[in-house]
């Protein structure tokens, strides 16, 4: 049984966007804080720290999860995916990102990384979603800028693109 005393710092190591990352942290440190403050991965944002807003959503072993409701020690030995690992390279955005840009599905961009991670998981499991399913999944996020409609449109288009039956390329 692993046992870490309060205040004791243990080595936490996991795969962050395909690369190993590690740091010595107390058991109470949240994964969201580890990502931002220890790993320097500031692409993941913190909006409420009680699991409602969705800004901090990351992939934990591929499953969209709130990093503010996860302890850093819980990520040990796992893989964590964030917005910073989405794009295939410097030249291009991935289909979901590109659709967000085309549809003006972001304004301030603060909630966007979490939303992108949710739909990365969601579309992998559900490549041909209905709009209602997209809305259901998006309801786990709060966006204050866009009015949501452009986000739904972007996800639907990204799904089409990823299925390969896009009638137009994501700009």
């Amino acid at each position: 049984m692993l046992r870490i005393a309060p205040g004791e710092r243990t080595l936490v190591t996991f795969e962050l966007d395909g690369r190993p990352v590690s740091g010595h942290v107390e058991p109470r440190m949240l994964l969201s804080d580890f990502l931002r403050q220890v790993a320097g991965a500031t692409g993941t944002h913190v909006g409420c720290e009680h699991g409602v807003c969705g800004c901090c959503t990351v992939l934990l072993d591929g499953a969209a999860s709130r990093s503010c409701l996860t302890l850093a020690v819980q990520a040990h030995g796992r893989s964590v995916g964030t917005v910073e690992g989405l794009a295939p390279g410097e030249q291009a955005l991935n289909a979901l990102q590109a659709a967000f840009r085309k549809h003006h599905a972001l304004q301030c961009g603060f909630c966007t990384p979490g939303i992108l991670m949710s739909f990365t998981d969601f579309l992998a499991r559900n490549p041909a979603p209905t709009e209602d399913q997209v809305r259901d999944t998006l309801s786990g996020h709060i966006c204050r800028c866009t009015g949501y409609a452009p986000i739904v449109a972007a996800v639907m288009e990204a799904a089409r693109t990823l299925r390969g039956d896009a009638t137009e390329n994501a700009a």
């Binding site: 049984m1 692993l2 309060p6 720290e49």
Partner: peptide, 13 residues
């Protein structure tokens, strides 16, 4: 909004 300190126990069984 950060947790107070606690002992973390992770049993395997």
């Amino acid at each position: 909004m950060k947790p107070r300190p606690f002992t973390y126990l992770r049993p395997d069984t």
